[in-house]
């Protein structure tokens, strides 16, 4: 199966985001590299706004992800509530 991934800078802003992704994607694998965290997942990876807001204790706009995003791989399906990476095969 094809792997999708998303990578963020390692900092205080991304810590709750990464925690939320890990919880919402039990099949995801977290790879820590110097200054960055790369999360791989088979087939599909979901980032949920509500899970991030729960940790942050404030409203979160998913477009804020861009600020600390390093890279990603997969087709993107985005709306206000979730950001999904997926390979269609």
């Amino acid at each position: 199966m094809s792997t999708v991934f998303i990578a963020f800078q390692t900092n205080e802003e991304t810590r709750p985001i990464i925690e939320a992704i890990v919880e919402d994607n039990p099949h995801a694998r977290v790879n820590e590299a110097p200054a960055m965290v790369k999360i791989d997942a088979d087939g599909r990876l979901i980032v949920k706004r509500s899970s991030i807001e729960e940790r942050l204790g404030r409203e979160f706009d998913l477009q804020e992800l861009h600020v600390n995003l390093i890279s990603l791989s997969g087709n993107i399906e985005e709306d206000e509530d979730q950001f999904v990476l997926v390979w269609k095969n």
Binding site: A33, M36, H66, V67, N68, L69, I70, S71
Partner: peptide, 23 residues
């Protein structure tokens, strides 16, 4: 990431900042 590993915060900063547009 290698720049960060080698202690070069400057390159890490402009490198990852550029990369944040890359997605």
């Amino acid at each position: 990431s290698g720049a960060a590993y080698n202690g070069d915060m400057g390159t890490m900063a402009y490198g990852f900042s550029a990369q944040s547009d890359e997605a």
